[in-house]
Design a protein around this nucleic acid. Structure first.
Lengths: 229, 229
DNA sequence: AATTGCATACGATCAGACAATCCGTCAACG
DNA sequence: CGTTGACGGATTGTCTGATCGTATGCAATT
């Protein structure tokens, strides 16, 4: 029997610590905890109903991902991101997504391209409405497709944590008027380049998209940093 | 008193867990534990003389870095890397190091270039001798310079963990006869391109170097995988 | 008002316990 | 003889209680 990897029963109820980790990550990414907030062990224990061990290990994981920062003897807080770091994050993101676009264009199958198109259509449609939830969901789905098509798990992992960290900024380009429409157009360009199997164009389109998004976000960010002073 | 950052007493004795983490990482990278080896909690407790808490948290950290893999109820083992994953790792590495070279060439200062040259000279000299330790040390030092010059901490972090993971393969290109000499030449090309402040050339030189190194390593790796069957 | 000193809060670490699970062994069974 | 099933040891998963060191806020003192 060639263990066809199908029929894999949920084998494990995913150790507690992983569950806590996921819950906490979601809570942070979704804004339930905001940058600078302290994450007190006992509170988290109560919140999730688990022991300190699991909480602490989950915190270590998120710390490794850059989502939380621990200060010795003061405990973990949700990471803050300054303008410079944000710039660097966007820089890498452009690089990696460009790579994904390139690889996708190089060896993406027909079905994958179709799936990408589909995801794009959903995103474009969501952009028409005013449902922010849907907008974010469809955009995330699109990126999932994009990264999957590149066929490089290492990069995919990196991008996932990058996205999470950037979300911490909670300053998506899409908060700017008119930016959404342009964003859709840029993403469309990505899809076209990939469908045309043009690696260079796909790479460029991805970078371009991120660069513009970064521009919008960073502008607001540094302006806000100014105010804070 | 303006706390001149001098006289900083080891302020924080770097929490135990971080120490364990560093020791363990070094032990793995250096080959004291080899891929596939089990890492049994209690043994590590004895080895490092610390409690289970610290060991477990350190393990979580290394797990996040990809150096160890945990199987439910069977515990952590040193990660194994298959050929496909190795290919992906090298792919990203080339991408990121190319980025570093580019950025370095774009805005590297004179002193930084001088330091890079110096590190290169040391590496070239070590390549003449037969001291493997020195060879590795000088090459690592060179990469440190290279990454520092790029001025992007995010990328630097990523590359550090990438390097660690790749070291797991313990199949550096340099085990091949004649490869060392060519390697030195390739690295020289990187230095020249950066010194000439030619971003494109620097990017290309970095990628090229990694690609060739990857070629040598992957060849041996897949050949060995063949044997194993 | 500034400084000092104390009480409290909280993380860091350890030790010990119990349950759940994996794995090898070995006997029973067809 | 091969398969099945049960048993036991090993190890992780998780929780809890306790101790220690450090940080922080408040109050007393000068």
């Amino acid at each position: 029997m060639t263990s066809d990897s199908e029929f894999q029963v949920p084998r494990r109820s995913a150790s507690l610590r992983v569950l806590v980790e996921e819950q906490l990550r979601k809570a942070i990414v979704v804004g339930r905890f905001r940058p600078g907030d302290r994450l007190i062990e006992r509170e988290l224990c109560d919140l999730f109903g688990v022991g300190r061990t699991s909480v602490r290990e989950a915190l270590r994981q998120l710390e490794a991902e850059g989502l939380v920062t621990s200060y010795p003897h003061r405990g973990p807080v949700v990471s803050k991101i300054d303008v410079e770091e944000a710039r660097q994050l966007y820089d890498v993101r452009g690089l990696l997504e460009g790579y994904c676009g390139r690889r996708f264009a190089e060896h993406g199958g027909a079905e994958e391209i179709a799936a990408l198109r589909e995801a794009y259509a959903a995103f474009a449609e969501a952009a028409e409405g005013s449902d922010r939830e849907a907008l974010i969901a469809t955009k995330t789905a699109f990126y999932d497709r994009l990264m999957a098509g590149a066929g490089n798990l290492v990069v995919r992992r990196m991008l996932e944590t990058l996205h999470n960290r950037i979300t911490l900024l909670r300053m998506t380009s899409m908060t700017q008027p008119g930016r959404i429409g342009r964003s859709v157009a840029e993403v469309g360009a990505i899809v076209e380049a990939i469908a045309a199997k043009d690696p260079d164009a796909a790479d460029a389109a991805c970078r371009d998209h991120i660069e513009r998004a970064a521009g919008a976000a960073l502008a607001r960010l540094s302006e806000e940093a100014q105010d804070a002073e």
